[in-house]
Write a protein that binds this DNA or RNA. Structure first.
Ligand SMILES: [Zn+2]
Ligand SMILES: [Zn+2]
Ligand SMILES: [Zn+2]
Ligand SMILES: [Zn+2]
Lengths: 149, 149
DNA sequence: GACGATTTGTTACAGTATAACATCACATCG
DNA sequence: CGATGTGATGTTATACTGTAACAAATCGTC
Protein backbone atom coordinates (compact mmCIF):
# COMPACT_ATOMS: atom_id res chain seq x y z
CA UNK A 1 0.00 0.00 0.00
CA UNK A 2 2.97 2.34 0.17
CA UNK A 3 2.57 4.67 -2.80
CA UNK A 4 4.95 4.45 -5.71
CA UNK A 5 7.68 7.02 -6.03
CA UNK A 6 7.55 9.11 -9.20
CA UNK A 7 10.54 7.17 -10.50
CA UNK A 8 8.87 3.83 -9.92
CA UNK A 9 5.68 5.12 -11.45
CA UNK A 10 7.41 6.34 -14.58
CA UNK A 11 9.18 3.05 -14.97
CA UNK A 12 5.98 1.07 -14.75
CA UNK A 13 4.34 3.55 -17.10
CA UNK A 14 7.03 2.86 -19.67
CA UNK A 15 6.45 -0.85 -19.50
CA UNK A 16 2.71 -0.40 -19.45
CA UNK A 17 2.74 1.65 -22.64
CA UNK A 18 5.26 -0.57 -24.37
CA UNK A 19 3.08 -3.58 -23.66
CA UNK A 20 0.12 -1.80 -25.19
CA UNK A 21 1.99 -0.54 -28.20
CA UNK A 22 1.44 3.05 -27.13
CA UNK A 23 4.13 5.67 -27.46
CA UNK A 24 5.01 7.33 -24.20
CA UNK A 25 6.85 10.20 -25.83
CA UNK A 26 9.14 12.65 -24.12
CA UNK A 27 6.38 15.23 -23.81
CA UNK A 28 3.86 12.78 -22.43
CA UNK A 29 6.38 11.48 -19.97
CA UNK A 30 7.21 15.00 -18.91
CA UNK A 31 3.56 15.84 -18.34
CA UNK A 32 3.13 12.67 -16.34
CA UNK A 33 6.17 13.66 -14.30
CA UNK A 34 4.70 17.07 -13.58
CA UNK A 35 1.46 15.53 -12.37
CA UNK A 36 3.36 13.15 -10.12
CA UNK A 37 5.53 15.96 -8.83
CA UNK A 38 2.55 17.95 -7.67
CA UNK A 39 0.79 14.96 -6.19
CA UNK A 40 -2.92 14.56 -5.61
CA UNK A 41 -5.44 16.15 -7.90
CA UNK A 42 -3.87 18.40 -10.49
CA UNK A 43 -5.54 20.85 -12.87
CA UNK A 44 -4.67 21.09 -16.53
CA UNK A 45 -3.65 24.71 -16.23
CA UNK A 46 -1.37 23.93 -13.32
CA UNK A 47 0.38 21.43 -15.53
CA UNK A 48 0.50 24.03 -18.26
CA UNK A 49 2.19 26.50 -15.95
CA UNK A 50 4.71 23.92 -14.82
CA UNK A 51 5.37 22.87 -18.39
CA UNK A 52 5.98 26.43 -19.44
CA UNK A 53 8.39 26.87 -16.57
CA UNK A 54 10.24 23.75 -17.60
CA UNK A 55 10.25 24.04 -21.36
CA UNK A 56 9.30 27.53 -22.42
CA UNK A 57 6.19 28.45 -24.40
CA UNK A 58 3.33 25.95 -24.44
CA UNK A 59 -0.39 26.19 -25.09
CA UNK A 60 -3.43 24.44 -23.62
CA UNK A 61 -3.87 21.84 -26.38
CA UNK A 62 -0.40 20.51 -25.73
CA UNK A 63 -1.29 19.74 -22.16
CA UNK A 64 -4.80 18.49 -22.79
CA UNK A 65 -3.63 16.10 -25.47
CA UNK A 66 -0.98 14.64 -23.24
CA UNK A 67 -3.42 14.31 -20.35
CA UNK A 68 -5.99 12.65 -22.60
CA UNK A 69 -3.40 10.16 -23.69
CA UNK A 70 -2.36 9.36 -20.14
CA UNK A 71 -5.95 8.88 -19.08
CA UNK A 72 -6.57 6.67 -22.09
CA UNK A 73 -3.66 4.49 -21.02
CA UNK A 74 -4.98 4.23 -17.49
CA UNK A 75 -2.00 6.00 -15.98
CA UNK A 76 -4.04 8.95 -14.81
CA UNK A 77 -7.65 9.20 -13.80
CA UNK A 78 -9.85 12.07 -14.70
CA UNK A 79 -11.72 13.48 -11.71
CA UNK A 80 -14.77 14.99 -13.34
CA UNK A 81 -16.15 16.41 -10.14
CA UNK A 82 -13.06 18.60 -9.76
CA UNK A 83 -12.03 19.13 -13.37
CA UNK A 84 -8.76 17.53 -12.44
CA UNK A 85 -6.46 14.60 -12.93
CA UNK A 86 -4.79 12.23 -10.51
CA UNK A 87 -2.24 9.49 -10.91
CA UNK A 88 -3.63 5.99 -10.62
CA UNK A 89 -3.02 4.69 -7.13
CA UNK A 90 -3.32 1.05 -8.08
CA UNK A 91 -1.09 0.84 -11.08
CA UNK A 92 0.58 -2.38 -10.00
CA UNK A 93 -2.44 -4.48 -9.30
CA UNK A 94 -5.10 -5.24 -11.80
CA UNK A 95 -7.82 -3.13 -10.35
CA UNK A 96 -11.15 -1.53 -10.83
CA UNK A 97 -10.65 1.73 -9.08
CA UNK A 98 -13.17 3.62 -7.03
CA UNK A 99 -12.32 7.28 -6.52
CA UNK A 100 -13.46 8.81 -3.26
CA UNK A 101 -13.63 12.58 -3.49
CA UNK A 102 -13.94 14.58 -0.29
CA UNK A 103 -16.25 17.54 -0.70
CA UNK A 104 -14.56 19.47 2.06
CA UNK A 105 -10.84 19.09 1.47
CA UNK A 106 -11.00 17.89 -2.16
CA UNK A 107 -8.70 15.06 -1.32
CA UNK A 108 -9.05 12.00 -3.54
CA UNK A 109 -8.36 8.42 -2.55
CA UNK A 110 -8.57 5.46 -4.84
CA UNK A 111 -9.61 2.17 -3.35
CA UNK A 112 -9.89 -1.22 -4.92
CA UNK A 113 -13.55 -2.07 -5.15
CA UNK A 114 -13.44 -4.59 -7.92
CA UNK A 115 -16.24 -6.75 -6.59
CA UNK A 116 -18.70 -3.92 -6.05
CA UNK A 117 -17.85 -2.36 -9.37
CA UNK A 118 -18.34 -5.65 -11.16
CA UNK A 119 -21.79 -5.81 -9.66
CA UNK A 120 -22.45 -2.29 -10.80
CA UNK A 121 -21.36 -3.22 -14.31
CA UNK A 122 -23.60 -6.24 -14.20
CA UNK A 123 -26.55 -4.04 -13.26
CA UNK A 124 -25.75 -1.76 -16.18
CA UNK A 125 -25.38 -4.71 -18.51
CA UNK A 126 -28.85 -5.90 -17.57
CA UNK A 127 -30.09 -2.56 -18.89
CA UNK A 128 -28.33 -3.21 -22.20
CA UNK A 129 -25.47 -0.88 -21.38
CA UNK A 130 -21.83 -1.72 -21.88
CA UNK A 131 -19.62 0.14 -19.40
CA UNK A 132 -16.21 1.07 -20.66
CA UNK A 133 -13.90 2.46 -18.10
CA UNK A 134 -13.69 1.07 -14.68
CA UNK A 135 -13.31 4.12 -12.64
CA UNK A 136 -16.18 5.40 -10.72
CA UNK A 137 -16.38 8.41 -8.52
CA UNK A 138 -18.06 8.86 -5.19
CA UNK A 139 -18.33 12.18 -3.40
CA UNK A 140 -18.64 12.58 0.33
CA UNK A 141 -16.56 13.15 3.42
CA UNK A 142 -13.16 11.69 4.07
CA UNK A 143 -12.21 10.40 7.46
CA UNK A 144 -10.34 13.54 8.49
CA UNK A 145 -13.16 15.88 7.51
CA UNK A 146 -15.84 13.76 9.08
CA UNK A 147 -14.60 14.07 12.61
CA UNK A 148 -14.08 17.46 14.20
CA UNK A 149 -10.50 16.97 15.34
CA UNK B 1 -41.58 2.84 -16.08
CA UNK B 2 -43.35 5.24 -18.39
CA UNK B 3 -41.66 8.58 -17.86
CA UNK B 4 -43.48 11.36 -16.10
CA UNK B 5 -44.93 14.20 -18.13
CA UNK B 6 -43.53 17.63 -17.31
CA UNK B 7 -46.80 18.46 -15.59
CA UNK B 8 -46.67 15.39 -13.41
CA UNK B 9 -43.04 16.03 -12.67
CA UNK B 10 -43.67 19.60 -11.60
CA UNK B 11 -46.50 18.51 -9.37
CA UNK B 12 -44.38 15.94 -7.61
CA UNK B 13 -41.58 18.47 -7.37
CA UNK B 14 -43.91 20.84 -5.55
CA UNK B 15 -44.85 18.21 -3.01
CA UNK B 16 -41.28 17.07 -2.72
CA UNK B 17 -40.04 20.54 -1.87
CA UNK B 18 -42.94 21.33 0.42
CA UNK B 19 -42.22 18.15 2.37
CA UNK B 20 -38.62 19.19 2.76
CA UNK B 21 -39.38 22.75 3.69
CA UNK B 22 -37.65 24.04 0.58
CA UNK B 23 -39.05 26.88 -1.46
CA UNK B 24 -39.70 25.98 -5.07
CA UNK B 25 -40.02 29.57 -6.20
CA UNK B 26 -41.42 30.74 -9.50
CA UNK B 27 -37.97 31.09 -10.99
CA UNK B 28 -36.81 27.68 -9.85
CA UNK B 29 -39.95 26.11 -11.14
CA UNK B 30 -39.52 27.86 -14.45
CA UNK B 31 -35.95 26.64 -14.78
CA UNK B 32 -37.09 23.13 -13.95
CA UNK B 33 -39.78 23.44 -16.58
CA UNK B 34 -37.23 24.50 -19.18
CA UNK B 35 -35.04 21.51 -18.41
CA UNK B 36 -38.02 19.20 -18.68
CA UNK B 37 -39.11 20.84 -21.92
CA UNK B 38 -35.80 20.14 -23.58
CA UNK B 39 -35.58 16.62 -22.26
CA UNK B 40 -32.44 14.59 -21.75
CA UNK B 41 -29.19 16.21 -20.77
CA UNK B 42 -29.36 19.98 -20.76
CA UNK B 43 -26.55 22.51 -20.48
CA UNK B 44 -26.70 25.52 -18.21
CA UNK B 45 -26.29 27.93 -21.08
CA UNK B 46 -29.09 26.29 -23.01
CA UNK B 47 -31.32 26.93 -20.04
CA UNK B 48 -30.03 30.47 -19.91
CA UNK B 49 -30.94 31.03 -23.55
CA UNK B 50 -34.40 29.59 -23.02
CA UNK B 51 -34.90 31.66 -19.91
CA UNK B 52 -33.93 34.82 -21.72
CA UNK B 53 -36.36 33.98 -24.47
CA UNK B 54 -39.11 33.48 -21.94
CA UNK B 55 -38.45 36.28 -19.49
CA UNK B 56 -36.07 38.81 -20.96
CA UNK B 57 -32.60 39.58 -19.63
CA UNK B 58 -30.97 37.04 -17.37
CA UNK B 59 -27.40 36.25 -16.42
CA UNK B 60 -25.51 33.02 -15.74
CA UNK B 61 -25.70 33.15 -11.94
CA UNK B 62 -29.47 33.17 -12.09
CA UNK B 63 -29.47 29.86 -13.91
CA UNK B 64 -26.66 28.23 -11.99
CA UNK B 65 -28.25 29.05 -8.67
CA UNK B 66 -31.56 27.58 -9.71
CA UNK B 67 -29.88 24.47 -11.09
CA UNK B 68 -27.86 24.04 -7.91
CA UNK B 69 -31.01 24.23 -5.88
CA UNK B 70 -32.79 21.67 -8.01
CA UNK B 71 -29.86 19.29 -7.81
CA UNK B 72 -29.72 19.81 -4.06
CA UNK B 73 -33.35 18.80 -3.82
CA UNK B 74 -32.75 15.70 -5.90
CA UNK B 75 -35.03 16.85 -8.71
CA UNK B 76 -32.19 17.10 -11.19
CA UNK B 77 -28.97 15.20 -11.44
CA UNK B 78 -25.72 16.76 -12.40
CA UNK B 79 -23.93 14.85 -15.15
CA UNK B 80 -20.33 15.75 -14.52
CA UNK B 81 -19.00 13.90 -17.53
CA UNK B 82 -21.03 16.16 -19.82
CA UNK B 83 -21.21 19.37 -17.81
CA UNK B 84 -24.95 18.97 -17.93
CA UNK B 85 -28.10 18.36 -15.98
CA UNK B 86 -30.89 15.84 -16.35
CA UNK B 87 -34.21 15.40 -14.63
CA UNK B 88 -34.36 12.52 -12.18
CA UNK B 89 -35.95 9.55 -13.85
CA UNK B 90 -36.91 7.83 -10.62
CA UNK B 91 -38.58 10.60 -8.76
CA UNK B 92 -41.49 8.49 -7.59
CA UNK B 93 -39.63 5.59 -6.11
CA UNK B 94 -37.10 5.87 -3.38
CA UNK B 95 -34.04 5.18 -5.39
CA UNK B 96 -30.32 5.24 -5.57
CA UNK B 97 -29.77 6.21 -9.14
CA UNK B 98 -27.08 5.00 -11.45
CA UNK B 99 -26.54 7.21 -14.47
CA UNK B 100 -25.43 5.47 -17.63
CA UNK B 101 -23.81 7.89 -20.03
CA UNK B 102 -23.25 6.79 -23.61
CA UNK B 103 -19.95 8.04 -24.98
CA UNK B 104 -21.19 7.96 -28.52
CA UNK B 105 -24.63 9.54 -28.47
CA UNK B 106 -24.37 11.25 -25.06
CA UNK B 107 -27.67 9.80 -24.10
CA UNK B 108 -28.20 9.29 -20.38
CA UNK B 109 -30.33 6.67 -18.73
CA UNK B 110 -30.93 6.34 -15.03
CA UNK B 111 -31.47 2.89 -13.64
CA UNK B 112 -32.26 1.81 -10.14
CA UNK B 113 -29.21 0.06 -8.79
CA UNK B 114 -29.83 0.47 -5.11
CA UNK B 115 -28.30 -2.82 -4.08
CA UNK B 116 -25.09 -2.40 -6.02
CA UNK B 117 -24.73 1.18 -4.90
CA UNK B 118 -25.25 0.22 -1.31
CA UNK B 119 -22.42 -2.22 -1.67
CA UNK B 120 -20.28 0.47 -3.18
CA UNK B 121 -21.04 2.73 -0.26
CA UNK B 122 -20.17 -0.05 2.11
CA UNK B 123 -16.81 -0.48 0.41
CA UNK B 124 -16.18 3.25 0.74
CA UNK B 125 -17.25 3.18 4.38
CA UNK B 126 -14.70 0.47 5.10
CA UNK B 127 -12.09 2.95 3.92
CA UNK B 128 -13.36 5.51 6.41
CA UNK B 129 -15.22 7.47 3.78
CA UNK B 130 -18.77 8.70 4.13
CA UNK B 131 -20.49 8.97 0.75
CA UNK B 132 -23.04 11.69 0.41
CA UNK B 133 -25.01 11.64 -2.77
CA UNK B 134 -26.38 8.52 -4.21
CA UNK B 135 -25.91 9.12 -7.82
CA UNK B 136 -23.10 7.52 -9.55
CA UNK B 137 -22.11 7.75 -13.15
CA UNK B 138 -20.92 5.08 -15.53
CA UNK B 139 -19.68 5.79 -19.04
CA UNK B 140 -19.84 3.33 -21.90
CA UNK B 141 -22.01 2.36 -24.82
CA UNK B 142 -25.77 2.29 -24.85
CA UNK B 143 -27.67 -0.48 -26.51
CA UNK B 144 -28.31 1.45 -29.71
CA UNK B 145 -24.71 2.49 -30.16
CA UNK B 146 -23.33 -0.92 -29.34
CA UNK B 147 -24.88 -2.74 -32.22
CA UNK B 148 -24.24 -1.70 -35.79
CA UNK B 149 -27.81 -1.36 -36.92
C1' DG C 1 -43.61 49.22 9.63
C1' DA C 2 -38.96 47.48 11.15
C1' DC C 3 -36.07 43.73 10.92
C1' DG C 4 -33.32 39.71 9.41
C1' DA C 5 -32.91 36.08 6.20
C1' DT C 6 -33.36 34.34 1.71
C1' DT C 7 -33.76 35.02 -3.09
C1' DT C 8 -32.86 37.39 -7.28
C1' DG C 9 -30.50 40.94 -10.30
C1' DT C 10 -26.22 42.71 -12.30
C1' DT C 11 -21.49 43.33 -13.59
C1' DA C 12 -17.38 41.62 -14.30
C1' DC C 13 -14.26 38.13 -14.57
C1' DA C 14 -11.93 33.53 -13.80
C1' DG C 15 -11.34 28.92 -15.23
C1' DT C 16 -11.88 25.01 -18.58
C1' DA C 17 -11.56 23.11 -23.10
C1' DT C 18 -11.51 22.65 -28.17
C1' DA C 19 -11.44 23.87 -33.36
C1' DA C 20 -8.62 24.45 -37.01
C1' DC C 21 -4.63 24.56 -39.31
C1' DA C 22 0.58 24.42 -39.68
C1' DT C 23 4.61 21.96 -38.82
C1' DC C 24 7.52 18.34 -37.36
C1' DA C 25 9.21 13.50 -36.45
C1' DC C 26 9.38 9.10 -37.90
C1' DA C 27 8.65 4.72 -40.14
C1' DT C 28 7.91 2.36 -44.60
C1' DC C 29 8.51 1.45 -49.19
C1' DG C 30 9.72 2.00 -54.13
C1' DC D 1 17.96 8.06 -51.18
C1' DG D 2 13.55 10.50 -51.63
C1' DA D 3 8.49 10.08 -51.60
C1' DT D 4 4.73 9.30 -48.83
C1' DG D 5 1.68 8.56 -45.06
C1' DT D 6 0.76 8.61 -40.14
C1' DG D 7 0.91 10.26 -35.78
C1' DA D 8 2.57 13.87 -32.62
C1' DT D 9 3.33 18.57 -31.58
C1' DG D 10 3.10 23.69 -32.21
C1' DT D 11 0.18 27.85 -32.67
C1' DT D 12 -3.60 30.97 -32.78
C1' DA D 13 -7.83 32.01 -31.71
C1' DT D 14 -12.06 31.24 -29.64
C1' DA D 15 -15.87 28.75 -27.38
C1' DC D 16 -17.73 27.01 -23.32
C1' DT D 17 -18.36 26.69 -18.21
C1' DG D 18 -18.70 28.68 -13.78
C1' DT D 19 -18.20 32.10 -9.84
C1' DA D 20 -17.05 36.41 -6.91
C1' DA D 21 -18.94 40.35 -5.22
C1' DC D 22 -22.20 43.54 -4.38
C1' DA D 23 -26.95 45.67 -5.06
C1' DA D 24 -31.79 45.27 -4.99
C1' DA D 25 -35.94 43.01 -4.12
C1' DT D 26 -38.89 39.71 -1.62
C1' DC D 27 -40.83 37.30 2.25
C1' DG D 28 -42.05 35.99 6.80
C1' DT D 29 -41.99 37.53 11.64
C1' DC D 30 -42.25 40.48 15.31
ZN1 LIG E 1 -6.43 3.53 -10.79
ZN1 LIG F 1 -11.66 15.68 3.50
ZN1 LIG G 1 -32.72 10.10 -9.87
ZN1 LIG H 1 -25.51 5.72 -27.46
Amino acid sequence: MTPLSPEEFLLIAQQHCAARGARLTELRQQVLGLVLARGGVVKAYQVLTDLQAARGPAAPPTVYRALDFLVEQGLLHRVDALNGYIACQHLECQHHGLLLVCETCNDVTEIDATDSLDQLSAAAARAGFQPRRQDVLLTGLCQSCRQPS
